[in-house]
């Protein structure tokens, strides 16, 4: 997935296309990095699992899909884009 964003280790995100800036929490930063590398849903979930202590109640798949909607709302990714796998 094309995601032309400057992402700093602290979670500061800069969209060079629009000039918008954002604060991302650690999970969001990780997902943005994964998306920049073109990862699909399964890989993104695995990425979160590798970095975080995940509880039983957490539904990572749902969280990733919701996060994609947030990115679409912020027009960081095109509205029609879906994650693979």
């Amino acid at each position: 997935m094309e995601l032309d964003l400057a992402i700093s280790p602290s979670g500061f995100v800069f969209d060079p296309r629009t000039g918008a800036t954002f604060s991302a929490n650690p999970a969001a930063r990780l997902l943005l990095e994964g998306m920049q590398e073109g990862e699909g849903l399964a890989a993104l979930v695995a990425r979160l699992q590798a970095h975080f202590e995940v509880g039983e109640a957490d539904d990572l798949e749902r969280d990733v899909l919701e996060f994609l909607r947030v990115l679409q709302d912020e027009t960081l990714v095109p509205a029609e884009r879906e994650l693979e796998g």
């Binding site: 700093s8 602290s10 979670g11 500061f12 800069f14 800036t21 604060s23």
Partner: peptide, 11 residues
């Protein structure tokens, strides 16, 4: 610089 904004935003 964008980094100066980042400092305030993050810290």
């Amino acid at each position: 610089t964008i980094e100066e904004l980042e400092t305030l935003s993050s810290a």
